[in-house]
């Protein structure tokens, strides 16, 4: 059974995001953050409620909430999460990426960059050389059946070219297949620096 062991927690959508942020924190020498898997976006808000009930939450001083925007305006998702926080009696951040001054201090980041539609995969793909991305897109053009989740497929395709070979974005992060120093990660970097 999972309990809250650390005073700083980051809640993310799934296992892949857990692996990604584990590497991201390590890359920027940030330690002492417990990454919590919400198991999908479908119940994201109710999982916030459940998380606040979990033993150890009373010791949490900083909580980050990260989810994908997909095809929804990030501002709408931000408002929805804030509404849940309000219902639970917690203060709400006034804007994306900003943390409240309350205890726990709470911040929200919506993938890929707090403004566009998309997912974590879109953010990572933006860090890849544009020539390579063009090649990947050409490959898909050559194929008769186009994948439904285009960015996830492109990530798989890109990872297939990396060494060592891994089969997920998060594991790719562990193997340094994403360049966290790239400027596209700057906004995310500013967000996670709040955990320092």
């Amino acid at each position: 059974m999972i309990t809250i062991e650390k005073s700083k927690i980051l809640a993310v959508e799934g296992k892949d995001e857990c692996n990604f942020f584990d590497s991201f924190f390590n890359n920027f020498d940030i330690s002492g953050v417990q990454i919590i898997d919400f198991g999908g976006k479908a119940k994201f808000n109710s999982k916030i409620r459940d998380l606040t009930k979990t033993p150890g939450f009373e010791n949490v001083i900083k909580m980050g909430l990260v989810r994908d925007s997909d095809n929804v305006d990030p501002k709408i998702i931000f408002d929805s999460i804030n509404a849940e926080l309000s219902k639970l009696g917690y203060s709400q951040p006034t804007s994306l990426s900003e943390f409240t001054n309350d205890n726990p201090s709470i911040g929200i980041f919506i993938m890929p960059n707090n403004s566009d539609f998309g997912v974590l995969e879109d953010l990572c793909l933006k860090s890849v050389n544009s020539t390579i991305i063009s090649c990947i897109k050409n490959l898909f053009e050559c194929c008769t059946a186009h994948p439904k989740e285009c960015s996830k497929a492109q990530v798989q395709c890109y990872l297939a070219t990396c060494n060592p070979l891994v089969n997920s974005l998060g594991l790719g992060a562990h193997k340094n297949h994403w360049d966290f120093k790239d400027i596209v990660f700057e906004e995310l970097n500013e967000f996670v620096m709040n955990f320092n």
Partner: peptide, 22 residues
């Protein structure tokens, strides 16, 4: 003393995530 209350829905959801409730 701090008291945490679960109804069935929140208990089920926490157990589904394998989060401790005790």
């Amino acid at each position: 003393i701090n008291l945490i209350k679960y109804d069935y829905q929140s208990l089920e959801s926490s157990l589904e995530s394998n989060w401790e409730v005790r």
